[in-house]
């Protein structure tokens, strides 16, 4: 019984996913690209970087990278804490 309920829920969710994927804006023409056009046109001048993705990761959105480094550090601390009690 529980399995059928789960299967029905999965089917409904899959239907929504597939429908929204089909009804999306067409592949290859993004909807909003003003911000990205600004990045592509001005990244070389403002950060003097050829790689626009790196300029976004480390310069325009540096706080994202800081949070990401924090998450990685937290994961390392968590793993070492989990295996600490094995060390006699």
């Amino acid at each position: 019984m529980k399995k059928y309920v789960a299967l029905a829920a999965l089917l409904v969710v899959s239907g929504f996913f597939l429908l929204s994927a089909i009804e999306m804006h067409s592949f290859g023409s993004p909807a909003e690209e003003d911000m990205d056009r600004y990045f592509i046109e001005n990244a070389q001048e403002e950060t003097s970087t050829n790689n626009v993705v790196t300029s976004i990761v480390f310069d325009y959105r540096g706080f994202d990278t800081l949070g990401e480094a924090t998450v990685l550090f937290t994961a390392v601390v968590g793993v070492s804490l989990l295996f600490r009690r094995l060390r006699k």
């Binding site: 950060t47 003097s48 050829n50 480390f58 550090f73 994961a75 390392v76």
Partner: peptide
């Protein structure tokens, strides 16, 4: 020899990631 502080940050994050993943 361009890009300002970006290579420095790249090295810092690279050291952090290689040490973190290696120790994991």
């Amino acid at each position: 020899n361009t890009a300002g502080v970006l290579p420095l940050m790249s090295w810092a994050v690279g050291l952090k990631v290689l040490a973190g993943l290696g120790s994991i």
